[in-house]
Design a protein around this nucleic acid. Sequence first.
DNA 1: TTGAAAGCGCTAACAT
DNA 2: ATGTTAGCGCTTTCAA
Lengths: 336, 336
Amino acid sequence: MSVTIKDVAQRAGVSISTVSRVINNSKPVSNEIRQRVLQIIEETGYTPNPVARSLVMKKSQLIGVIVPDISNFFIGEILNGIEEIGKMYTYDILLCNTYGDLEQELRYLKLLKGKQVEGIVLMTWDLQDKLIDYLTDCEVPVVLINRNTSRLDVPSVSIDNFQASYDMTTYLIQNGHKEIALIRNSLDSNTFCMDQYNGYKKALEENGIEINENLVQFGNFKLDKAYEIVKEWIHSDKLPTAIFATSDTMAIGAINCLLDHGFQVPNDVSVTGFHDTKMASFYRPTLTTIRQPLYDMGAVAIRMIIKIINKMEVNEKVVILPHELVERKSSGPAYL
Amino acid sequence: MSVTIKDVAQRAGVSISTVSRVINNSKPVSNEIRQRVLQIIEETGYTPNPVARSLVMKKSQLIGVIVPDISNFFIGEILNGIEEIGKMYTYDILLCNTYGDLEQELRYLKLLKGKQVEGIVLMTWDLQDKLIDYLTDCEVPVVLINRNTSRLDVPSVSIDNFQASYDMTTYLIQNGHKEIALIRNSLDSNTFCMDQYNGYKKALEENGIEINENLVQFGNFKLDKAYEIVKEWIHSDKLPTAIFATSDTMAIGAINCLLDHGFQVPNDVSVTGFHDTKMASFYRPTLTTIRQPLYDMGAVAIRMIIKIINKMEVNEKVVILPHELVERKSSGPAYL
DNA sequence: TTGAAAGCGCTAACAT
DNA sequence: ATGTTAGCGCTTTCAA
């Protein structure tokens, strides 16, 4: 049996409320008594039971984090930010992995509420309508990372995906590319994927390049899928001079396929990614990509949730963090 | 205010004990009443408050997981296993990131105990004595992943690092290599790093190859460190024909350095890794490495903790999972 | 089969 | 400044 507030009170010859006061510094306690209590606490190694505390205060000091894949490079770095800043404010992280499955997401959302978490940070590949419906009347505050939707007044943190995509496409155009493929993700209009597509489109339009829908494919964040897409282009002899994949993993899939088929990157084809995960600099050729402040995204999200929990003022509910085009070795001038 | 057991009891016209009985199936309840209660629960959307339950049952259904780096490829995959199997047994994961810092590890160990977790899964780069001391009289059950020590009777799950290292070294020898470098990690004799070194040594000895201590360096799991080590060999003209790095990340660091200096892999130098993270097959050349069943290691560890928590019999406290040498494109015959 | 009541460890009125 | 007491929402004896 571990030692309780009662034991401490008894041994110190005071009431439990006094002990409570000294551990919480909630009300004045005479110095003499405070010292005695502190001493006993020290001696016994007493630590307050947070479960009991949660029960009465209705505060669990727990924040739920729902992610689609812990082992994803991109997500891992965000989690670092969430975890570190959370701990800094004495919140703990309850981690849930959904594999991107909507049913799981819904299940965990309920489960976390049941667990009395005070807030939830939600990441999902695909912000589906059913999820939005649920979020709409969810009493627990939720912050989305890298998703937002006009359908919903939920706080979120992300980068300007439209602009980033526009920047990357423009960069490729400036390098002389005219056939620029896009390997994008979900069709889901609630997410940034659409923004990315629109940024791509705008850059092409501004430069008088017509969109070739055959060069716009859905990769679903998967390396293998991107590989297959490129293979298909190669086999049908429709290989573009540049491929812009909206994740580093897909970009690597694309490059691997090109390499395996005897093409050179960037000499034959330029390939660019998105995210700037560690992979982007580990891999050879190093990847030209869009740097997202991953750690910061996690940090900002959790900070926002904590502010909301504590009813502090939140200046902007939709936070846009800066991005940056990082030019490395996987892209270059178009072969003319 | 959310609905409590009291509300349900009232609306069903029964006592709270009866409600408790139906939700827990703990004692017989007449069918009629059971139905009525179930109905009310359905109507009200009542879910039991796990915090209150924890308080009386002294079971939090929480398992603490302490890791040195969430965003590490290796760890992410293990976490997937921990999370999924944990959830399967209705346990939740409280995640703590230490950046490998001993003080943090100690801090979190205490914090988790305070949070009433029922068990802890601990991963650390370096199993230091101070940590072992602490674990020795820690009332909460702990399972180590990929570490164990004779100093301590703590359950653990890992692979046979000695054998794996022996296998890899032998493989390289069989490919005609005689100058085989080892990029290893900590000196810490409590961890597998020593086993790896010993496996390497034994393979060399068995084949009558003398150890060249200059070719045994400490990389500390870091890509950059491995890069520097190889650079040093190149500059001092002591490049071996094979490099065995005890992590994929370090192997990639080594290859990157070789590539950057105009060497070919595996034509000039063979490089092999350890872990078989996703990186190993993403990267080009694909890495010859030791496959560890990462997901399974997490799964087994959490299963073990749950068994211990529930006082079930645990057959073996030190679980050794099978490994496998995966031959890919980063290694080949020695240049003769 | 059901209900009343005690108590898990704590906080926060309220009373002194 | 300190103590008494009533809960927080639940499980679990004990009695009926």
